[in-house]
Design a protein around this nucleic acid. Sequence first.
DNA 1: ACGGTGACGAGAT
DNA 2: TATCTCGCCACCG
Length: 105
Amino acid sequence: MVSSGFFEKVWAFVARIPEGKVVTYGQIAAYLGNPRAARTVGWAMHSTPENHDLPWYRVINSRGRTSMGGGEHSPDLQRMLLQNEGVEFDLRGYTNLDRYQWIPD
DNA sequence: ACGGTGACGAGAT
DNA sequence: TATCTCGCCACCG
């Protein structure tokens, strides 16, 4: 079977996040049935395939900040991509989850 | 099978 | 608010 792992579920979830909205790592873990697997979700995102079409930048941490990262994935790039979609950040780099967090149907 | 790993989370300082 | 510490857990060699 090609897609049965936890990572696959994470990617499938991320693919559904609408434009201008964000979700947190812990939130994804919870919706997938493992409330405490936030770190694993983070690792899944780190392991996203090269040819990803995923809106990876719509995943942020529970405090409304863009994820840490190195190299290609920089917090600044992530913030920029989100601002392009209308997500606003305050001067310290935080966004308002009450306003932009996506709650699946 | 086992253990290191990591784009996290929550509480403490 | 910035940092640190610890607990968590699926994946891969």
